[in-house]
Design a protein around this nucleic acid. Structure first.
Length: 216
DNA sequence: GTAGCCTAGATATCTCCTAT
DNA sequence: ATAGGAGATATCTAGGCTAC
């Protein structure tokens, strides 16, 4: 994303961005007069503005999908926690749920294996939001494969879990520490500590659910 | 400086869906 | 009908931040 930051006419404030994201979710593809409705929601922006903003977003996604946009690559930390890239999700799960039901144990857990983990970067989180917007809630595999390629589906799901918890909590509590989950739209990166409401909630088609059993 | 609280990532387990 | 795969949810643990 660069275009909208350079040209003044297309400068988007955080609030506008959030309103835009909100509107996108509220008026999914297929909605009649979608862009007009979205433009109404985003104060200070015209129909053309929101359209071009969306185009930029789409271009961004295309670039990411085409591998043109470099993403941080944490292939294997010292402990080898993030190797992913591929069908990650199943990997560990297979080992656990498949045969080793005997050790729910931490024994094999290499005590230290659990620790830390690599913190999500804003970039990853934004990719996550993009993927969430495109594939919707539940399709962690696709999001992992096409957007947050540095994370396994399991990691994405875990991140999503916390994200949505944070989201629902933040509705009621203003008194929260800032966190990466405060970035609720792809253009919200610099606004981490502000009270952001206008989250991408995984509504791809106007419905909240994407997975077979929508909970959360 | 210390204690307590909050956040976030990882992991374990359960449930449901789909393929064979 | 069964097995395997995938997502959802609960819980644990570590680190960071805030208040005292």
């Amino acid at each position: 994303m660069t275009a909208d930051e350079t040209s003044e006419s297309s400068t988007w404030s955080r609030e506008q961005d959030k309103a835009f994201e909100n509107a996108l979710a509220i008026h999914p593809e297929g909605t009649e007069n979608r862009w007009e409705k979205i433009a109404v929601e985003v104060t200070g922006k015209t129909l053309e503005d929101v359209k071009s903003h969306y185009d930029i977003l789409v271009e961004d996604i295309s670039g990411i999908e085409a591998g043109l946009v470099p993403v941080p690559c944490y292939v294997s930390s010292p402990e080898g926690s993030v190797e992913h890239v591929g069908e990650g999700g199943a990997s560990r799960k297979d080992e656990n749920s498949q045969g080793n039901s005997n050790h729910k144990g931490k024994a094999s857990r290499l005590d230290q294996e659990r620790r830390k983990g690599i913190a999500w970067t804003e970039e990853e989180h934004r990719l996550f939001l993009l993927g969430l917007e495109k594939y919707g809630k539940g399709d962690w595999r696709s999001i992992s494969r096409n957007y947050v390629v540095t994370r396994t589906p399991t990691q994405v799901a875990s991140h999503a879990q916390k994200y949505f918890i944070r989201l629902s909590n933040s509705m009621n509590k203003d008194r929260r520490r800032s966190s990466i989950h405060d970035i609720t739209s792809v253009g919200d990166a610099e606004n981490i500590s502000t009270t952001s409401r206008g989250p991408i909630t995984g509504q791809t088609n106007g419905h909240f659910t994407a997975g077979p059993r929508a909970v959360l």
